[in-house]
Write a protein that binds this DNA or RNA. Sequence first.
DNA 1: AATGAATGAGGCTTCATTCAT
DNA 2: GATGAATGAAGCCTCATTCAT
Lengths: 221, 221, 221, 221
Amino acid sequence: MSTKVTASVENPELVQKRRAQIVRAATKLFSSNGFNNTTIKELAAEAGISQGLIYLYVREKEDVLLLVLQQVVEEYAVEIPRSIVGVKSPLECLVRAIDAYCRVVDRHLAATTLAYQATKSLSQSRRNSIQESEMETNAIIGEIIRDCIGQGILRSVNVDILTYQIVFAAHGWALKGWYFKPRIGLDEYISDTIDIILNGLLTPEGQDLFDSLPDGLFSPV
Amino acid sequence: MSTKVTASVENPELVQKRRAQIVRAATKLFSSNGFNNTTIKELAAEAGISQGLIYLYVREKEDVLLLVLQQVVEEYAVEIPRSIVGVKSPLECLVRAIDAYCRVVDRHLAATTLAYQATKSLSQSRRNSIQESEMETNAIIGEIIRDCIGQGILRSVNVDILTYQIVFAAHGWALKGWYFKPRIGLDEYISDTIDIILNGLLTPEGQDLFDSLPDGLFSPV
Amino acid sequence: MSTKVTASVENPELVQKRRAQIVRAATKLFSSNGFNNTTIKELAAEAGISQGLIYLYVREKEDVLLLVLQQVVEEYAVEIPRSIVGVKSPLECLVRAIDAYCRVVDRHLAATTLAYQATKSLSQSRRNSIQESEMETNAIIGEIIRDCIGQGILRSVNVDILTYQIVFAAHGWALKGWYFKPRIGLDEYISDTIDIILNGLLTPEGQDLFDSLPDGLFSPV
Amino acid sequence: MSTKVTASVENPELVQKRRAQIVRAATKLFSSNGFNNTTIKELAAEAGISQGLIYLYVREKEDVLLLVLQQVVEEYAVEIPRSIVGVKSPLECLVRAIDAYCRVVDRHLAATTLAYQATKSLSQSRRNSIQESEMETNAIIGEIIRDCIGQGILRSVNVDILTYQIVFAAHGWALKGWYFKPRIGLDEYISDTIDIILNGLLTPEGQDLFDSLPDGLFSPV
DNA sequence: AATGAATGAGGCTTCATTCAT
DNA sequence: GATGAATGAAGCCTCATTCAT
């Protein structure tokens, strides 16, 4: 990671342990109440430590947020590559990557939502550090897509847009959880999503209709 | 709208005018600095009025946020139906709706981003009011999709998921503007998005490969 | 003054009035308890205003200290020149200046003591601003001394050292008030001080003795 | 000393050694940053020991300050008498004492300044203990002066005021070091100071003028 | 004796909200 | 209707002191 959070405690195991405590508590509170509405006092209480102790492991409150967000993007960066290790077929890679992404999100619902809420609360440099990590993960997906296109498995579509469509589909499970969770399970969400994205929507008749639409249909109003 | 913001000023035209001033300023400041990092003092300065005056048109700070968010969702609720008025073909409706949604987002980049950041800062009742509006707009899109499916234009896919895929595509223009804006124009974004969503991705060969993938490929790890 | 303290309140009369309140309270509390041991809460209470109000007239606590110290040095810079206005004889000027200095100190016992205690609590730039004021006042005294020497009234002594001897004599009334106050009145303090400084100490016989002291008597140990 | 600082460590040599470490570090930090702006953590780092260790040799932070100040006043109390040991002539005693005082100050510039700043940070009992030491040293000088007067070497002036004039002259070398140091050396400072104090200022003509000044010149305004 | 992690009280400062004009 | 000075409740963070090792 480019942006390091500094601790004034030397012992690295202790640092890791304490920070894990803090991040766990922070993820919970930040995502349910928001970063700004969570006080250090509450955070300390949730983590089972004193207020002052937090500041031995973090220089300011914003650092806690950074640690939380770093944890998620790092898990993305680890889990998605791991899900396609050893898989030859690019198509299978793509399917597995989508699947893995959705499942990582499911394990980090709170933190994922948080990333959308709280990035504005980070200073520019810290925000950059998070966005770079995000782009790295996206690059992996983009690569898989390019492979598929190269092998004639996928049509030659806009890779960036498709990448983000996949990313949003995964994040959507967290962002709109309040809508989906009561209606559908994760497995179904994943398979239906993959179905829509890969198989497209139009029936043969629909395809004819679509082709006959005037070209400039959706041009500037 | 179910949740009304109350003003202590009688003259309704004045209320409208002042609130417009306030909302304009708030949209700018909230979306660039975040809701919590914007002070009433800054807001008043940006709106060209005094701090005290704000409280004649709003009961508390959160109300300002509600007004801002209401404005966006209302514009969604107005613009999207308008874009399909008089259009017979459900497929054309769908295409026009996606196009319209993206363009409304483009006109409200700041506010759209804000909706993702700041909803957590709303009290539950206010949050519900926004989410209901969002669902109303989504319902329109869902209806169009169902029409398409009913007429055999689209395959029978999961309507909810597809709806949100479209919604995310539109919102994505705002949420990831920092990525897309330097790389692509709005028109291209819209047409490529529609292409991917409607036409699907798989080539005929890709289709064969996909069909031969083991069924339980992406089941729980 | 070079270093200005900024207020966020416009009305200059109000600023002056409130700052006077604050400075009066601060002088009292700072000099009896020290700058660091005085809390803003105590200060507000003593001034009869709320904590928050202080920050409409001052950017940070240190500014309050600066205001207090500025007030004293400014009074020095005003009172001492005023005491010699229109006086022709340089010797009379000198006597009057010493007298005036001591009396200003007497009117600002607390603040004078404070200046010795708290200058270290000022940031460098603020400290400089105070030291410059001090030097301006000292320059006036130095000028008078030079006049006296020029006219053959005083021996040609080290002007800087004599200046500070006078300054210390004045400040001493505040600094060692705990010693002098119970033993002697201000008038007597002033006249005895002037007597010692101007008339010297040695009797004719003492003079002879002094002249016969070995030259290197007080050289480095 | 009346006020003792207690240590929880038995071995007196160790106590002395550790305290010396602590006092050395404290003198440096307190006088450059002020007592209140120096943390125990910094102090420990400067002294090369741990925070906790300090509390084995001192009951609270204020004790450290007391130790520092005690060290200076004790050195005054030792050095000044030593400088006049065996000297018969009271005038020579006086000159030597002034000289010695200035030189002790020069060796303890930081601590001397500190005494003026930080005495207010001491509790009353500790402050008294320091002031008593100061008075003891002053008493020695007062005695010498009285001797001189008794032997007809000095005029019969106010002994207290003269004593403090001498004390201030010595302290001034530290207090106004920022002014004198770049302009003059210690030796010159001492000899010029003694010259002014002992020989007085007025020329014969000045004397006449002075005698002809109206008596109530410097009476209350 | 020594360490340094841990505690928690309390200070400075901000800011939503009120109120006198 | 409008202003902006005034309030006071917290929030973040620091740091003297303690305590387990």
